[in-house]
Amino acid sequence: MQEQPDAPFSPGLTARVELTVTDADTAQAVGSGDVPVLGTPRVLALAEAATVAATATRMPPGGTTVGLRVELDHTAPTPVGRTVVAQATLTGVDGRRLRFEVAVTDGGQTVAQGRVERVLVDRQRFVERAGAAS
């Protein structure tokens, strides 16, 4: 992906978000398994939240990003009470498409990593189109 000269976003933007794991975040609670550890859907939501945060300060008026593609390896369990940190880095811009590398860590251990692709859209048009589809 190449950076667009007039794009509001450029590679290198980063953000991090934290989550202290509660019972509501477990695989048992979110329906993705039967173990009392951080569920993969919550890991994914945290990773996406970091990508949203990375673009927030440069978002054009009326704009937003929506998820397009995710590749995520969730490789280690995190018990209730631990704090995980998701870090997202914008690595590529191709027109309205934004590609991020994401990593989620628990202390010094990487518990998940992958890539998230998002697309810049006009918020109002997107919501209107979504409503027309129903």
Rank of each mutant, 00 (worst) to 15 (best):
Ala29Asn: 07
Val84Met: 07
Pro36Leu: 12
Thr89Trp: 07
Val84Leu: 08
Thr22Glu: 14
Val70Ala: 11
Thr89His: 04
Glu3Met: 07
Leu13Cys: 03
Val43Thr: 12
Gln4Met: 05
Thr105His: 12
Gly67Cys: 06
Arg118Leu: 03
Thr26Ser: 09
Val84Ala: 07
Glu101Asn: 07
Val30Asn: 15
Ala88His: 08
Gln28Ile: 13
Glu71Gly: 04
Thr57Gln: 14
Val70Asn: 13
Pro77Lys: 09
Val21Asp: 09
Val111Trp: 05
Pro5Glu: 14
Gly33Met: 13
Thr14Leu: 06
Val93Thr: 03
Ala130Met: 14
Val17Gln: 11
Gly107Pro: 02
Val70Pro: 01
Val30Pro: 06
Arg96Lys: 13
Gln124Leu: 10
Phe100Glu: 03
Val17Phe: 06
Thr26Phe: 10
Ala27Thr: 03
Ala7Asp: 10
Gly62Pro: 01
Glu3Phe: 01
Thr64Ile: 07
Arg99Gly: 01
Leu68Gln: 15
Gly81Thr: 10
Asp73Leu: 09
Glu71Lys: 08
Thr65Cys: 08
Glu117Ile: 04
Asp122Ser: 02
Val37Cys: 05
Val111Asp: 05
Val21Leu: 11
Pro79Tyr: 10
Ala27Ser: 12
Gly108Lys: 12
Ala27Asp: 11
Gly31His: 08
Ala47Phe: 02
Val93Asp: 06
Val111Glu: 10
Gly95Trp: 14
Arg97Ala: 07
Ala49Asn: 08
Thr91Trp: 06
Asp25Met: 01
Gly114Ser: 01
Thr75Asp: 09
Pro77His: 10
Gln4Pro: 00
Gly39Lys: 04
Gly107Ala: 03
Val52Cys: 12
Pro5Asp: 14
Arg96Gly: 00
Leu13Met: 09
Ala103Asn: 02
Ala56Gly: 01
Thr22Pro: 01
Gln113Phe: 07
Arg115Phe: 07
Thr57Pro: 00
Thr22Trp: 03
Glu18Cys: 05
Ala88Arg: 05
Asp106Glu: 14
Met1Asn: 05
Arg69Thr: 09
Thr57Phe: 09
